[in-house]
Design a protein around this nucleic acid. Structure first.
Length: 690
RNA sequence: GGUCCGGUAGCUCAGCGGUUAGAGCAGGGGACUCAUAAUCCCUUGGUCGGGGGUUCGAAUCCCUCCCGGACUACCA
């Protein structure tokens, strides 16, 4: 029996769980359930990641204390997870007593190992909000190309990387104030001292997927590792560093330690010793994470564990992101579906099955194509698997299963033998392979029923025995499949257990037929997915007023009497007003109505479309607009837009842009949520906007 | 730009040096009626991205080109 401790990444306490998160939690939960099913002892811990500037700011905006904010968020997270049958042995919080104690313990070891250095860091400070600003809370003009309103780390126009302090006219996205440079001492961990160890650990071939090991080798381990800035000056929501008053551990220092803290809570409750789980050769530790946090889990974290004398991860399982119909999840397209929105429309079983059927051990993105989702769930689960029970159970309601298992031509035995292969696939997190093998069994079981025709047997009282035998076989094949699928579909396993009066608890139940039990009245186990429910879910996930939402309900433009304007303040808060300007300033900008007379894709560009704008009378302008991710060229031709007509021409990679099409959207370089500015009926190309 | 991963039937993918390249779904034809318009049988469909090479033999190995995607930490 293996002893295994499993974690999923700690969700950040600053937003709801969505279907993207669920890829990871479902992947992990399946693995944990599988391990327990085959008789290993597997404990699954997780926690909310609560610290950092983002939570501090969100709590401030909501007008509540941080502790209240994170408590509410945690309640919501736990509720969502439970609804998807994700079963943690302990769900903690990084803002816990246990975590603080462990952080202090780690810190002591790291200090003692001589890894900590203090160094002054110049950082932008918001004098109005009285806080230091992480890069993403600063925006300004790119020092290289002069593009305005660029993020604090790199320019979305020219791609130039810089530090936020290099921006021209920087401003805080919190208050709109001009940030000032302030010096503050920060504490750094000199990771380079652990370089040899990390080389060996990452390249051993045992702990990481090969592509990850390779990536680390190429990107980081080929040169000296940079020092890691692990402190933040007050104000900061987190733990104050005991020997450095006024400084707090950066959230990424205490977050992974939260894995141990959560385990500690579980140990306390269950009379276990923490050292048996985190400082023992006999216990495996498996982390499941997304590819975005690879760096932290494969370099910092092993380094910290090594230094503090804890067990190193046996394996870090890294998965890709979720895409929907081949595209990144998008709020405006309604594919950024919150867990709770999903639950209003669809059964969680569907998503568990679908993800399982798509997941492999590779670091690949997983695509949820709506058609495929519907087809897979309905054909595999309902039509094939559940069908086995629903077509035979009622024939043996009265008699129960036969007392001895009849001859089935080797079907059950063959499927039992396949168990090893299925088991290996699960263990290797190659669920798509496991599911493929299992569903193949249903493809062999249905023809058996077809051939033996129980519906004819029941007409002849003399064949009652044969009828019972045929159904005993069919129900056993069904049950065997359900045992194999039970890590993925715990609810179905429970229903099958109830139907046949024998709860499914162990993998071995797939190896021996069940005989002589009563059979209960069959009730529906799983409804078919309706495509309209999926679409309703996506509709509900769309923000009001997006181009997509408009397209879905043409004619919704005329705002009826019942319309409500309860617009949230989020958009404004995300990008506060800039300092006021005079009418003369405004007059310098010549905004004109223009007609898009041609629009073409720039194949090499990620975000740009090439537009030809007509100002009327043959005056045209060539403009490159960063709207490719939101609009198709065909949608634009013929439309009236508002352009900045006197903007100095700018040479871009693909040609000269002679103006700019105005568009609204949130700050940031993400151009998936842009909405071009159009003009009311009657305006003609050439009209100036006054 | 660099690194990595892919490109096999309409779709999702399996096969990764050895008999005429497979599955599921979709399409076509038929059967059945126990079952959630479920199931079963038959069937159409592919110069395995292009080109070159290694080999008795290549979808599978090597080279090269083309196409698609991901990543590119000092954000959380």
């Amino acid at each position: 029996m293996r002893r295994i401790l499993v974690t999923s990444a700690l969700p950040y306490a600053n937003g709801d769980i969505h279907i993207g998160h669920l890829v990871e939690y479902i992947q992990t939960d399946i693995w944990v359930r599988f391990q327990n099913l085959v008789g290993n002892r597997c404990v699954y811990v997780c926690a909310d990641d609560t610290h950092g500037t983002a939570v501090m700011i969100s709590a401030g905006k909501a007008g509540v204390s941080e502790s209240k904010f994170i408590a509410e968020m945690q309640r919501a997270h736990e509720r969502d997870f439970a609804a998807f049958d994700i079963k943690f042995d302990n769900y903690g919080s990084t803002n816990s007593r246990e975590n603080r104690a462990l952080c202090e313990r780690f810190w002591k070891s790291i200090r003692a190992a001589g890894l900590v250095r203090e160094r002054d860091v110049e950082q932008l400070y918001d004098p109005e909000a009285k806080t230091f600003l992480p890069d993403r809370f600063v925006r300004g003009t790119c020092p290289k190309c002069g593009s305005v309103d660029e993020p604090g780390d790199n320019c979305s126009k020219c791609g130039h990387h810089y530090s936020p302090s290099e921006l021209i006219h920087p401003r805080s996205t919190l208050s709109g104030a001009t940030p000032v440079l302030r010096n503050a001492p920060h504490l750094f961990i000199e990771l380079e001292q652990l370089h040899d160890f990390l080389d060996e650990w990452t390249q051993s071939g045992k702990h990481l997927q090969p592509e990850i090991a390779n990536y680390l080798k190429g990107h980081f381990l080929g040169e000296p590792l940079r020092d890691w800035d692990i402190s933040r000056p007050a104000p900061y929501f987190g733990f104050e560093i005991p020997d450095s008053p006024g400084n707090y551990w950066y959230v990424w220092f205490d977050a992974p330690i939260g894995y141990i803290a959560s385990t500690h809570q579980w140990c306390e409750r269950n009379g276990e010793k923490l050292d048996d789980w985190w400082r023992s050769e006999d216990c495996e530790i498996h982390h499941f994470i997304g590819k975005d946090i690879t760096y932290f889990h494969t370099l910092f974290w092993p380094g910290m564990l090594k230094t503090a004398g804890f067990t190193l991860p046996t394996q870090v399982h890294i998965h890709g992101f979720l895409t929907v119909d081949g595209e990144k999840m998008s709020k405006s397209k309604g594919t950024f579906v919150a867990a709770k929105t999903y639950l209003k429309h669809l059964d969680p079983t569907y998503l568990r099955y679908f993800y399982a059927s798509k997941l492999s051990s590779r670091v690949e993105d997983l695509d949820l194509a709506v058609d495929e989702f519907v087809a897979k769930v309905n054909t595999d689960l309902v039509n094939k698997v559940v069908n086995l029970a629903s077509r035979t159970a009622k024939f043996v309601e009265a008699t129960g299963l036969s007392a001895t298992y009849p001859d089935d031509g080797g079907l059950f035995a063959d499927a039992a033998q396949l168990g090893d292969e299925i088991r290996e696939a699960y263990d290797a997190t190659d669920y798509s392979r496991a599911v493929r093998l299992i569903v193949g069994l249903a493809d062999r079981a249905n023809p058996y029923v077809e051939e033996r025709k129980p519906w004819e047997l029941r007409k002849d009282p003399k064949k009652a025995r044969e009828l019972q035998d045929v159904c005993t076989v069919a129900l056993n094949l069904f049950r065997q499949i359900v045992v194999y699928l039970s890590p993925v579909l715990p609810r179905l396993a429970e229903q099958a257990g109830e139907l046949l009066n024998d709860p499914i608890k162990l993998w071995n139940q797939s190896q021996k037929p069940l005989v002589g039990t009563k059979v209960n009245k069959f009730t529906h186990m799983l409804r078919r997915v309706e495509e309209k429910d999926v679409h309703a879910m996506i509709e509900e996930s769309k923000p009001a007023g997006s181009p997509a939402a408009e397209a879905a309900s043409p004619g919704a433009e005329s705002i009826g009497a019942g319309a409500q304007w309860n617009d949230s303040g989020d958009a404004l808060a995300a990008e506060p007003l800039v300092p006021e300007c005079t009418i003369e300033d405004f007059a310098k900008v010549d905004l004109r109505v223009a007609r898009v007379i041609a629009a073409e894709d720039v194949p090499e560009a990620k975000k740009l479309l090439k537009l030809t704008l007509s100002l009327g009378g043959g005056t045209t302008k060539n403009v490159f607009a960063g709207i490719k991710e939101s609009y198709e060229p065909e949608q634009l031709v013929g439309r009236l837009v508002v352009c900045v007509a006197n903007l100095a021409p700018r040479k871009m990679k693909f040609g000269v842009s002679e103006g700019m099409v105005t568009a609204a959207g949130p700050p940031g370089k993400d151009t998936k949520e842009v909405f071009i500015v159009t003009v009311a009926e009657g305006a003609v190309p050439g009209h100036r906007v006054h």
